[in-house]
Write a protein that binds this DNA or RNA. Structure first.
Lengths: 209, 209
DNA sequence: GTCTATACATGGATAGAC
DNA sequence: GTCTATCCATGTATAGAC
């Protein structure tokens, strides 16, 4: 049956990307992982790139859906930071972040993969952006920080650090620690009194140019 | 002559990586770019991966050397920020950041490339770390922010954003803008009076856990 | 020691079988 | 409509020529 084969291929593509990387994600390897004939990729998806693109969108939607309601229920940057830590750890373990990194790199020279990766990343960014714009409003950063830009910077940075982890686990650990400290700084602003907040705002205006 | 061929191959590998990405960086393609026979890669470097590894170290050293003295001459975070902007723009245009991204992704499943990329990135990180630890000392972040971790986070984040730019130029632009605002915040702290600095320090201690 | 011609492996894609 | 057997391009690696 067609639908079953298509899904086997999507799962096979995801598993191959996560376990062996884009370099090994050939039609033959993916088909073997999926347990189907190699030619089926071209029948069902047209090309390897298009299968990978479909798998990217499929996988990202699957993963983001896991967190959507819980993100909407958060009430402070501190809570977000706490939640983000466990979320990142879970996605890292699932190999999802590294997979996006692989596709992102491949997307540099494949328009099909570029569009798919932008879409997949976009799902994460959308969630981040909406929770950030809701929560930043309660801090002195309101009106100063741009939630859309921050969401994109955060998503891209995590992917960069995750890729970095693959070549220097210890260095990546210290990078994540440093960012957590920085995020904790912003979260700490929530707890300041109104006088201190005013001082901070003045500092921000001066820092801006 | 041997040395000339080796250098042609190193340059050819760099050009291929920058212009066509890791996916096209095969022995045939690189050799064609370098204008030499394909088999020479294996004679001089043993394998394609080892050539790419050598090229990565070669290229990173070349690029970092350009900035070493100028970074050492900087005297404030504001100056650093200004300089970093032009430096990043120049490297971006040269394709160097994207190349590191390509190698970083490939390094996930190739120990040889992983080691080389870690080394290449390490050169940038080393420069960043030394200038950051020197300049952060003059701000309220002194003792709070970890220069080693920040340098690694910065380098990895820029690579992530650069890869992101390949699939969503506009989104990457807003991400960079947001980070510049954030960096400007830290730079602004330099100009605060001692009372305000004390308030900020108190906030930081509260934000830390 | 340096390089080229050639062998062998893997990958993408499709014509045609069911 | 679904799938398999087969073709051709591209890739790695080396035996042997110079």
């Amino acid at each position: 049956m067609s639908a079953a084969t298509k899904e086997k291929l999507l799962e096979g593509a995801l598993r191959t990307l996560v376990e062996q990387g884009i370099a090994k994600a050939s039609a033959r390897t993916i088909a073997a992982t999926a347990g189907v004939g190699q030619g089926l990729i071209f029948y069902h998806f047209g090309s390897v790139d298009e299968l990978l693109a479909a798998a990217c969108r499929f996988g990202a939607e699957q993963r983001v859906a896991r967190y959507r309601e819980r993100l909407a229920a958060l009430n402070s940057l501190t809570e977000l930071l706490e939640f983000a830590r466990s979320m990142h750890e879970a996605e890292r373990a699932a190999g999802n972040v590294a997979m996006l990194g692989q596709l992102l790199a491949a997307g540099q020279s494949s328009p099909v993969l570029a569009a798919a990766t932008a879409d997949g990343l976009g799902l994460w960014i959308q969630e981040l952006e909406s929770v950030l714009s809701r929560l930043l409003a309660a801090t002195p950063l309101d009106g100063y920080a741009d939630p859309a830009g921050l969401a994109r910077a955060t998503a891209a940075s995590f992917i960069g650090i995750e890729l970095y982890e693959g070549v220097d686990p210890q260095g990546a650990g210290s990078a994540l620690d440093a960012l957590e400290q920085l995020a904790g700084l912003a979260a700490g602003l929530e707890g300041l009194g109104s006088l201190s907040q005013r001082v901070v705002r003045r500092g921000l205006r001066r820092g801006a140019r």
